[in-house]
Amino acid sequence: MSSKVLEIKNLLMQFGGLKAVNDVSLDIHESQITALIGPNGAGKTTFFNCLTGVYTPTSGDINIIPPGKKLIRANGLKPNKITEIGLARTFQNIRLFQNMTVLENVMIGRHAVTNAGVLGAIFNGKKTKEEEKKIIHDSHEILKVMNLEKFANEFASNLPYGAQRLLEIARALATDPFLLLLDEPAAGMNPQETIELIGTIEKLKHEFNLSILLIEHDMHLVMNLSDMCYVMDYGRLIAKGTPEETANNPTVIKAYLGEDF
């Protein structure tokens, strides 16, 4: 088995009396697609927000192991630090920079891996100019991979819905992650778009050598894509295994469909 890139131990996130994430432990392995599924309100997005630094977990460990580097304990790090380490995320309720162009949205993603500052901007020396050129070039390459280059100069708000979801992914890719966290990437897509998305995610995984953690409702997507599957309900992990195993797990079926089935 390949080495771990992320290791979660006994993660607890408590809001007042509510344990939104309760004692969750899971590992994500290099070059694998791991899916996290569960009914609405199971705590999946809260879990994501703990990983990405939006919330500081109440207790437990979040350990990030960048490939070939030392382990970093990421509890309480700010979101931008997590991104710098190499975790990038998308948002369930699309959060694009609406009044910027599609290309610019991706260019923001390159922020973490570039470093021109205020003085650089004002004097606009050779180094800054070259960096800027490279940002434009790299961002455009990413748009091409995601098949979005025809929209490059459109405002993000003018994109069709499916393309907005893809742009979310493109923007995350631009930060050069080794682990990509996708929060319901297929939400609101039609079946045709979902099929295309499966292909795109597969392609990204190989082309960028990515590990992927995916929150999803669409079982079709999960079945087709994931190597490993975790199921959450009421903040707890209730099952893990291959997609087939979990789909046939009686506890999971009960969690999704209720006691009567």
Binding site: A88, I108, V113, A116
Partner: peptide
């Protein structure tokens, strides 16, 4: 100076912050 900054890496990150601070932070902007 404003023109130079507006379309630089720093200026873009400011505009992104205006548009959506949470997403902006998630893109690695401090």
């Amino acid at each position: 100076i404003v023109w130079r900054m507006e379309n630089s890496r720093i200026g873009r990150s400011w505009v992104a912050m205006r548009e959506d601070d949470i997403a902006c932070e998630a893109m690695g902007v401090d």
